[in-house]
Write a protein that binds this DNA or RNA. Structure first.
Lengths: 346, 346
DNA sequence: GTTAGCACTCCCACAAGCCGAGTGCTAACA
DNA sequence: TGTTAGCACTCGGCTTGTGGGAGTGCTAAC
């Protein structure tokens, strides 16, 4: 397929921009007046006819204006859209306050993003595949229960209750703690596999079975992290767009938001593809999620140090304001970096 | 207002039941055939006319059938509905598996409830106003940060990162841990007030400022619990009911579900009123939440030992299947009790 | 290659009309 | 006195039809 010539590009651009604004099919006369091309509507019509044949736009019905096709949007995003100068617009720093509780920060971010864009925002907590154990402690909570506290690099804290048949005496506990810390410290979840566990069990040999239980539980706790959290906000924003607010479609979409598991595929997909910007745009049926074939999805991955990555996403109608959305995502990326890297204040 | 006579009750009952089924205004002829009263439609009409005058039913427009008014629903719930025999229908016990993670259990319950009823379910974690501290530990995670782990009765675990200017030495830490445990153990969040804190600070005198910081942070952590979690499920179920799925109404409702803060008033209200059953029904504008004036809300409070109470709720259209809903809530109450009281399995 | 003009298409909003469900009322009946 | 049959009437919802408007494609002239 040959490239579009300059004039066609301009016209396509005008059509799409106009459609993004109004959501109505746009006609030749509108373009003729609206754009700075100084062409009559008739000429525009001819060009539009070509563009339609090439697949960039389509008519909902004869004698209606044209609307962009998926391919048209794609061309727009890839070639026509002007990159906004990445001036890191300062976002309110209210998120800094509670830095200890990551969920809250993420929730807030999602909320802000949704409010800024008027679309639905999703955000995942960074996944810690390669994150390392930083500190580890077992405590006797009562006669039959141990509490394991695990702190990962980045201060992600996990708790796990472990039932034991009998209480461990202090000394054993101390030894166990030392053993665990020395052997597991600095290892990532990935590196803690059956082999490591087996070795550990051997070293702890004397207390065999109890220790065994503890270790199993522990390993499970560290690894079970795979279930990554996904936060959404502004889910009802989709109801603002008539093309999505039809009861049937809305349900499917909202269901996808509630059943966050479905969103995982988005995240995975995004992670696997690395562009330089890390921003990914799915238009219509390009999306890995069936229910979103009438939407566009823009995702960005953020990285915090080695191996810790998360995903931010915006879901809206195909006629979303791509520039604004991508701009927002970019700045948020930077912000996230800052928030989590920064040694936290009290 | 005088009581309704037997026949009027029967007719009202028939009208409401029919309307619950169909969602359509119900006419006199339907009742005449449907019910076992063997009355002609004309007679029914007369009675219906009376019932309307008394405020139990109303006509959406002239020459349409009748639909129940809020007052009608109220009468139905209070007097007509047959109590289902409380046979504790066994719910799947799949929730038991992961008892350690309370959120998950609650999430699951909400999901199940929503699936069973086809309405929206909400459920709050038990609030621990009077719950007691069971175990408490400070650990040095790295040079500048302490991790406070607090275990409450019922094995609710909380974590709090505390930044310090300099590391505490081991001995100080040990002393501090002992001090904290002996002084705070068995106290409820309510009982840990400024007075207690001041006394503690005094006792810990020597390490004055650092300890001070730690205590403040700790007290904050224990009390901040007030922000009770609310889980929802099946939010999109409301879109199944035409009378609620209008775009405008749906947004308001769904917003209320997303902004869980709004739901708090429901919880509080429910807590304050104690009937013997603990089940509360809000019909239409009886609800404390404005947005829900076209819905009915049924809540139940569950109790786990002293002072720990939570709330389960169902939100649906006014023509909800009250019997089924209330039945579900009752059994869930029992189940919840069982799950949390039961000494948890591995 | 561009433009003006024109006939044509099709959606949409609105009005008119019909149908059916349901009512209220009246009169007859037990 | 309570119940029933009958009938005229009302009103919402559906279908149909019509006109207007927006937009197109095509043709012919510039």
């Amino acid at each position: 397929m040959q490239e579009l010539d300059e004039r066609k590009r301009k016209i396509l651009n005008a059509i799409i921009r106009n459609y993004l604004d109004t959501g109505e099919p746009v006609g030749s006369r509108t373009i003729s007046k609206y754009s700075d091309l100084n062409l009559s509507s008739a000429t525009i019509r001819n060009e539009m006819s070509d563009l339609e044949e090439l697949g960039y736009i389509l008519q909902p019905h004869t004698s209606a204006g044209r609307i962009p096709s998926d391919q048209g949007y794609r061309f727009y995003v890839d070639n026509l859209m002007r990159e906004k100068d990445q001036e890191v617009t300062e976002m309110k720093e209210f998120m800094i306050e509670h830095t200890e509780r990551m969920e809250q920060v993420l929730q807030q971010m999602a909320k802000m993003l949704a409010a800024n864009t008027n679309y639905t925002a999703m955000i995942t907590s960074p996944s810690y595949h390669k994150n390392k154990v930083k500190f580890l402690q077992l405590s006797q909570v009562d006669e039959e229960q141990l509490l394991a506290v695990i702190v990962m690099e980045g201060n992600l804290v996990k708790n796990k209750m472990i039932s034991t048949r009998e209480a461990l005496d202090n000394e054993t506990l101390l030894k166990l703690n030392i053993l665990l810390n020395t052997s597991l410290n600095g290892l990532s979840a990935e590196e803690i596999n059956l082999g490591t566990i087996a070795k550990l069990k051997e070293q702890a040999g004397i207390h065999s079975n109890i220790v065994s239980d503890v270790l199993d539980a522990l390993a499970g706790a560290i690894q079970e992290d795979e279930e990554l959290e996904i936060y959404t906000s502004g889910t009802t924003n989709i109801l603002k767009y008539p093309e999505l607010s039809d009861s049937q479609k809305a349900r499917e979409l909202l269901d996808a938001f509630e059943e966050k598991k479905q969103l995982v595929s988005l995240v995975n997909e995004s992670l696997s593809s690395h562009e330089e910007t890390g921003i990914q745009v799915y238009i219509g049926s390009e999306s890995p999620i069936q229910n979103m074939k009438d939407c566009s999805v823009v995702t960005a991955t953020y990285q915090l140090g080695e191996g810790m990555t998360g995903t931010i996403g915006i879901i809206g109608p195909k006629r979303m304001d791509y520039e604004n959305v991508m701009d927002n995502l970019k700045t948020l990326k930077v912000q996230l970096d800052a928030v989590f890297r920064k040694p936290r204040k009290t």
